[in-house]
């Protein structure tokens, strides 16, 4: 009983902001600022459908573009980062090569680098090759996922018996063939986890795309909503459209895909998250 009360309290705490977001999404600007019913209940005007219509048509439907961009960046960045992590993790786990220990030390040290230190030099570098304000400026840097490599390495070390690899080699399989037929299937659980983690990482990314993109057409949804927030609060930016309603509904719509993805894929990632910690 006590356990259930505790859980209910936790659930209320974790869902309260979402409840507010849902309620606020149904209000027009007037309802948001001077509506009836207060912040946690519905206004007498139910404007959800008007807001939805506005959200998907405002500025020629730019919001849909932002969602599409987020999907593109997260899918390509996530898939790319996962592919690199699988290869590298396998390489680190199952081969000895010169510079291996140094590389590992570098890899593990790299997670302590503050991102702000990287943004300006990355911007300078990308602009020298004319890549700022292109999709590559977002996708290529998000291929970097040192933690994913580490995760794959830890997992591969235990999950792939050396004997199996040797047997394949004895049978005359090349290294690539051995990797694809023997190692890769065994790595799948960890691969799904790394994929999800890098997908989320890219989807949530904000400051790198903010710095390297200037065209609204290329923004991911986080940066787009940030732009609207800035416009809404800088008085001269809004014109007469209620950006607050759009920001609130836009936030709600943007988090739905990820929540759905997580909830429906939970059996794949739940075990994987513990890989780094379980011996």
């Amino acid at each position: 009983m006590g356990a259930h009360v505790f859980l209910v309290v936790l659930v209320i705490y974790f869902l309260l902001p979402l409840w507010w977001l849902i309620v606020a999404s149904t209000k027009d600007a007037h309802g948001l600022f001077s509506g009836t019913g207060g912040a946690l209940w519905f206004d007498k005007t139910f404007a959800l459908f008007d807001n939805l219509g506005l959200l998907f048509t405002y500025n020629d439907g730019i919001y849909l573009r932002w969602l599409g961009n987020s999907v593109l960046y997260a899918v390509s960045g996530g898939a790319g980062a996962t592919a690199l992590a699988i290869l590298a993790g396998y390489g680190f786990a199952k081969f000895a090569f010169p510079g291996r220990r140094l590389s590992l030390a570098l890899l593990l040290g790299s997670v302590m680098v503050p991102l702000t230190a990287l943004v300006i030099p990355t911007f300078a570098m990308l602009s020298q090759v004319g890549m700022t304000n292109t999709i590559w400026a977002v996708i290529l840097p998000s291929l970097l996922n040192p933690f994913g490599v580490y995760l794959m390495m830890v997992y591969a070390t235990d999950a792939i018996p050396d004997e199996l690899l040797d047997a394949a080699r004895v049978d005359g399989a090349g290294e690539l063939r051995t990797f694809f037929t023997v190692a890769l299937p065994l790595l799948r659980p960890a691969a799904v986890t790394v994929l999800l983690l890098s997908f989320v990482g890219t989807w949530n990314n904000y400051f790198l795309p903010l710095a390297v993109l200037s065209s609204n057409n290329l923004f991911p949804v986080t940066v787009g909503l940030g732009l609207w927030d800035g416009l809404a609060n800088s008085a001269s930016g809004t014109g007469t459209t209620s950006l607050w309603s759009l920001i609130i509904l836009g936030s709600l719509v943007s988090i739905i895909p990820l929540i759905v993805a997580f909830l429906s894929l939970q059996r794949y990632w739940r075990g994987g998250l513990a890989v780094g910690s379980l011996k």
Binding site: L84, A88, Y90, G91, F92, F95, F97, V149, E175
Partner: peptide, 8 residues
Amino acid sequence: GWLFVAPF
């Protein structure tokens, strides 16, 4: 080993 690690 390096070949596997190289892309990353």
